[in-house]
């Protein structure tokens, strides 16, 4: 039996293992190597040492701006979306009637395809005829330029990403529903009010879910591509030049495969360090039942 399980275990897991080697590990090593060449889409590659990295760090101001802008958007959208999602989930967890209806309404935006999402928001953001400026006008506020202004573009895109927080909300809601009722009752018996319940039961019990959403949210917002590609072309004045879009532009618009590979190696390192930091700090704030793990 053991032998049979070993044989079939390896056979059945083989596609996934090969897939990891062919589509993940292999290309990552290749990207690292290509990053030391001047490979252009048409020509043959030459080894250029650290020239690409030198250019990224010392000459290419767009690359640096791009890193800043990407962090700005990633942190902003993760914080705003997570807070919106958490508050919504808390409200929905108050034994409301028509829960499935509300849940569906808040979830729907997150299944809108990126391309349709971009087109709809372009029209909402339209400074002259868009709905958002009309709403501001109704409330007596001055109009905004939204994605057409250097300083407003990132907050605008964060607003747009908060609209798509439904998936995060669903995970929070599932987490809230999984908190044993006895814990709240215990606080009530000890004379605790809603704040005590929230602070000493809800928050600690939700830290694993918050951790999960934080990691997934950061990874996906670092990969934002559709917004610059379809809506802003990285502008105005490179204010929305997201890193992934900049890699894409270098590789497929300018044909600089070597340079783009160096850029993507840096992205990988950034994500690696970030994830490492989050996992390292998690033991201080993530609570696992039955003692601290990891």
């Amino acid at each position: 039996m053991r032998k049979l399980e070993l044989k079939w275990g390896i056979i059945l897991a083989l596609p996934a293992i090969l897939g990891f080697l062919i589509w993940n590990l292999g290309p990552m090593i290749a990207a690292f190597v290509i990053g030391f060449t001047d490979w252009s889409i048409a020509g043959t590659p030459n080894f250029v040492g650290l020239a690409n990295y030198k250019e990224i760090f010392f000459e290419d101001f767009i690359a640096k701006k791009s890193i800043f802008v990407t962090f700005y958007f990633a942190i902003g959208s993760v914080v705003v979306s997570m807070i919106t999602a958490f508050l919504t989930a808390l409200l929905l967890n108050q034994k409301v009637r028509a829960l499935p209806l509300f849940r569906t309404i808040f979830f729907l935006p997150s299944i809108v395809p990126a391309i349709a999402n971009a087109v709809v928001w372009l029209w909402l953001f339209n400074p002259d005829f868009g709905l958002l400026n009309y709403i501001l006008e109704v409330f007596g506020l001055s109009k905004l330029q939204w994605i057409y202004d250097e300083h407003q573009v990132i907050p605008s895109l964060i607003l747009m990403s908060a609209w798509g927080m439904g998936y995060t909300m669903m995970i929070f809601l599932a987490g809230l529903q999984g908190i044993p009722q006895q814990l709240y009752e215990a606080v009530a018996i000890d004379g605790g009010n809603w704040w005590h319940k929230f602070r000493h039961v809800t928050i600690p019990m939700m830290t694993p879910t918050i951790f999960f959403n934080l990691v997934m949210g950061l990874i996906s917002s670092f990969q934002a591509f559709a917004q610059p590609f379809l809506m802003t072309e990285g502008g105005p004045n490179y204010a929305s030049m997201f890193y992934c879009y900049y890699i894409y532009k270098n590789a497929f618009d300018y044909g600089r495969m070597g340079y783009a590979s160096a850029l993507s190696t840096i992205l990988f390192l950034i994500i690696l360090v970030l994830t490492f930091l989050i996992f390292k700090t998690s033991s201080y704030w993530v609570y696992y039942e039955g003692g601290r793990s990891r």
């Binding site: 990891f20 589509w23 993940n24 292999g26 290309p27 990552m28 290749a30 990207a31 290509i34 490979w39 990874i219 670092f222 990969q223 591509f225 992934c244 890699i247 894409y248 590789a251 495969m257 783009a260 590979s261 993507s264 190696t265 992205l267 990988f268 994500i271 690696l272 994830t275």
Partner: peptide
Amino acid sequence: SLMVPYVVTLIPTFLL
């Protein structure tokens, strides 16, 4: 592999 962004592997995969 869940943590590797699609663009990181895109260029070598494209060349392949």
